[in-house]
């Protein structure tokens, strides 16, 4: 590359490419080429130049960019081969198809943003009390972290204090536990907090189950409610 490093640096600071698709679209736009007839050699060269530049700037080139580089090079090599069969697809289809789909989604995203967005262009009433619609007889409240911790502490208290030295291998991870809980919830739809804790488990198993529950709430996979009268905490699969 003959350009001054500073110059390139300035140019590219403005263009932050989220991924290889964004970079490719930028190159197509910049070189004013027809997306249905991409000059694959030109675009591949420009693409590789950009990757080189990223490397020279010590930017960590993500694997995604390299996969695309390989794809482009592969298409370029295919283009050089004489076409054997009549009905053979243009090798560029491999890149044109995803590009068009991505562009379509980008336009759709822009279109969504043009709508009257709640909380930005239009407003509705908002109530603090979420429980208006619920019948008093069967009221449930959403459980906060502290109720959950109380419930957990009560469970921990039930573990016998004297236990032999535990030399068993490490149990399930939080991730495994989430999968396990998902299986239960998929079948049952909802489950009480106490049901999830086997009285014979070790403390570490308790902790893992509890962490799994917290993680699932965070990921909005489950919601946790407590019945007002009985105090039973129940997990619902969303």
């Amino acid at each position: 590359m003959s350009e001054e490093p500073e110059e390139i640096y300035e140019v590219h600071l403005k263009d932050i490419f989220e991924g290889p698709m964004d970079l490719l679209i930028h190159l197509i736009k910049k070189n004013e080429v027809d997306i249905y007839d991409i000059p694959i050699a030109l675009i591949t060269d420009k693409y590789l130049q950009y990757i080189d530049w990223m490397k020279s700037m010590n930017v960590n080139v993500a694997g995604d960019f390299l996969v695309m580089a390989a794809t482009l090079t592969h298409i370029k090599s295919k283009m050089l081969l004489p076409i054997q069969e009549e009905d053979e697809d243009d090798p560029r289809i491999e890149i044109t198809r995803p590009l068009l789909e991505y562009l379509q989604m980008k336009s759709a995203a822009e279109h969504l943003l043009e709508r009257d967005i709640l909380g930005e262009n239009t407003f509705s009433r908002s109530l603090d009390r979420k429980d208006l619609a619920l019948d008093n007889e069967d009221r449930v409240i959403n459980v906060g972290l502290f109720e959950l911790m109380d419930a957990f502490q009560r469970l921990l208290d039930k573990i016998p204090a004297f236990k032999e030295l535990d030399v068993s291998p490490a149990g399930a991870s939080v991730k495994d536990k989430i999968n396990e809980l998902l299986d239960i919830l998929e079948k049952e739809g909802s489950v009480t907090f106490d049901q999830l804790f086997d009285k014979n488990s070790t403390k570490s198993e308790f902790v893992i189950t509890f962490l799994a529950i917290l993680e699932m709430v965070r990921l909005a996979i489950i919601s946790i409610v407590q019945h007002v009268q009985s105090g039973i905490i129940r997990l619902f699969y969303l």
């Binding site: 197509i28 249905y36 243009d90 289809i93």
Partner: peptide, 27 residues
């Protein structure tokens, strides 16, 4: 949600108007 056909009617400098306005062809 707008259909893919409606989306294509939206401004898109990358898709030349003269080419195939009615479908989303590959090549």
């Amino acid at each position: 949600l707008p259909t893919p056909e409606e989306i294509k009617g939206l401004v898109n400098p990358l898709l030349p108007e003269k080419r195939h306005p009615d479908q989303l062809p590959l090549i």
